[in-house]
């Protein structure tokens, strides 16, 4: 099978983009960082497929990670903060009563001056920073593949396999990547950037098509070309 765009894009590049969006104070800055990533993806797509007809590959593998709350293809992960905390404690061999284990388990408690109380992903980031690889090695496609197996093993009630998949993600990712992975799994990215904004930057007709179909994959595939609008594809639709 032809390698997809997602199989070429390091997950780290998506995460650094999300980090920049989140850190930006102004809307134009946030927009700029998102557009840079999206435009690179589209240009790379053009170079990879050379405008071949009938290409199903699209921005979808990234979009479903950017808007995890709209995920429909994957069933629930069955994972919340407490389970992740226990998993990290086990994996990192943290003493159960030690400072870091307690930080993870009591992530809601107000802590220091960082103002990260209540945000498990940020608490985990500071615990993980000293303890995991500087650089991750996963691509966007690999992350989606592992999340697929987390979801399907969860629905098959194979907790051992869910854990195995999560370990795979954790051992191959940097602390920054894990912070974003956690947010994707919890399905709250905290970007300060609405779903509406993401859609409108992707394509002028994206919100409309999403409202009709609630199908993120279809939105990404059919509106891949910014110059091709809903009126052009509606003949095929209806």
């Amino acid at each position: 099978p032809q390698p997809t765009v997602a199989s070429h894009v390091p997950f780290a590049d998506l995460c650094s983009t999300l980090e920049r969006i989140q850190r930006s104070k102004t809307r134009p800055e946030k927009v700029k960082h998102f557009k840079e990533f999206l435009d690179s993806w589209r240009r790379f797509h053009d170079a990879l497929y050379k405008k071949a007809a009938g290409v199903a590959d699209s921005f979808y593998p990234a979009m479903r990670l950017i808007l995890p709350q709209l995920e429909r293809e994957r069933v629930a992960y069955g994972i919340k903060e407490t389970m992740l905390a226990k998993l990290y404690i086990e994996l990192l061999h943290l003493p159960k009563d030690g400072k870091d284990a307690q930080k993870l388990l009591n992530y809601r408690a107000p802590t220091g001056p960082r103002g990260d109380a209540g945000d498990f992903a940020t608490v985990a980031y500071f615990v993980l920073k000293q303890r995991c690889p500087r650089q991750g090695c996963l691509t966007v496609q690999q992350v989606n593949d592992v999340l697929d197996s987390v979801a399907s093993n969860n629905s098959a009630k194979r907790k051992d396999l869910v854990k195995k998949s999560l370990l795979q993600l954790i051992t191959q990712s940097s602390a920054l990547e894990q912070k974003w992975l956690i947010r994707m799994i919890i399905k709250d990215l905290k970007l300060g950037f609405s779903q509406q904004t993401v859609f409108s930057l992707f394509h002028r007709d994206a919100t409309e098509l999403y409202n009709v179909t609630t199908d993120l994959e279809k939105v990404c595939r059919q509106l891949h070309e910014p110059s091709v609008g809903l009126s052009d594809i509606s003949i095929a639709l209806f």
Binding site: P3, P10, D13, S40, F44, L48
Partner: peptide, 15 residues
């Protein structure tokens, strides 16, 4: 590293 396009050429990492 093959003959195909390289992602790194398309996406410039911010300094």
């Amino acid at each position: 590293v093959g003959d195909g396009p390289q992602w790194g050429v398309f996406f410039k990492k911010a300094a």
